[in-house]
């Protein structure tokens, strides 16, 4: 009897500066398998489809349930998390590649520290007075909470940036993830008090004005965050800010 297998084609790269190459794999089929289960199988039996002994493929992963954002990669050309990529639902051979907009560390691992740096630039936080007990937070309607909650589910996975034609490896564009975070913090009653600082950041180089309105970001977001809505809102807020700057400064 022919045992059922899963076929994979994986783009590999040993070092950041070395040349990528492709390898093919065949792992035993198990029900409910996702792409990560296949990669784990390659760790346990590090052989290519034609039996060559190799270093196991490396990839990033942690939670395996699509809340940490770590295991993002290109699967059959589409950027997504590999934990929720169920083998039964995708075409074989399953083609795996690292994200293309970030420097490759090794194999399917990339360095996404640029997104975190941009979060720092955008001052994506609520500037609280301190951690001591000074009582309740601001009263807030549940509808505002709901609006913020959707935005705060962003796991900094980078899907929207990978999909964005404007975001390239070497330009300084911040991209939808950052604009949406600025909106999240500007929506908070305390965050609103410092909204100008955040707006100034995204009005500068690599900011919202560079958005080409391709709308690829919103389609790629695994958490269905209304990114184009965020971009539109930030467009409005920065326009007002620009006007205010002209009139008052």
């Amino acid at each position: 009897m022919d045992a059922k297998t899963i076929k994979l084609k994986i783009k590999r790269q040993d070092k950041p500066e070395s040349k990528p190459y492709w390898q093919e794999f065949e792992v035993p089929y198990k029900p409910l398998s996702n792409v990560i289960a296949c990669l784990m199988e390659i760790q346990r039996t590090p052989l290519t489809a034609d039996g060559k002994q190799i270093n196991p493929v490396t990839w990033d992963a942690n939670c395996l349930e699509e809340v940490c954002g770590s295991c993002t990669m290109l699967i059959n050309g589409k950027v997504r998390q590999s934990c929720t990529a169920l083998v039964d639902q995708i075409k074989q051979p399953i083609v795996l590649e690292p994200m293309s907009k970030f420097p490759v560390v090794r194999d399917l691992q990339v360095d996404r520290s640029r997104i975190f740096k941009d979060l720092k630039k955008a001052k994506a936080w609520i500037p609280i007075d301190g951690t001591h007990d000074i009582g309740e937070g601001p009263v807030m309607s549940d509808s505002l909470r709901a609006k913020r909650y959707v935005l705060s589910e962003c796991m900094t996975c980078g899907c929207c940036l990978e999909a964005c034609p404007q975001y390239t490896k070497d330009n300084g564009f911040m991209g939808a993830a950052i604009f949406s975070q600025v909106r999240l913090f500007n929506l908070h009653p305390t965050g609103e008090m410092t909204q100008e600082e955040r707006l100034e950041t995204i009005m500068g180089k690599g900011g919202i004005a560079d958005c080409g309105n391709a709308q690829a970001c919103v389609e790629s977001c695994p958490k269905n965050i209304p990114l184009t809505e965020s971009i539109a809102d930030m467009g409005r807020q920065t326009s007002w800010q620009l006007l205010k700057n002209l009139l008052l400064k």
Binding site: W125, I126, T131, D133, I134, E136, V139, D142, Y149, G191
Partner: peptide
């Protein structure tokens, strides 16, 4: 309770009641 208030002040999107308090 003080920890929850702190987290709330830090902007955690805690679900809320009709009056806008923590649920």
């Amino acid at each position: 309770p003080a920890i929850i208030h702190l987290l709330d002040r830090m902007g955690v999107a805690f679900n809320r009641t009709g009056e806008g308090h923590l649920a």
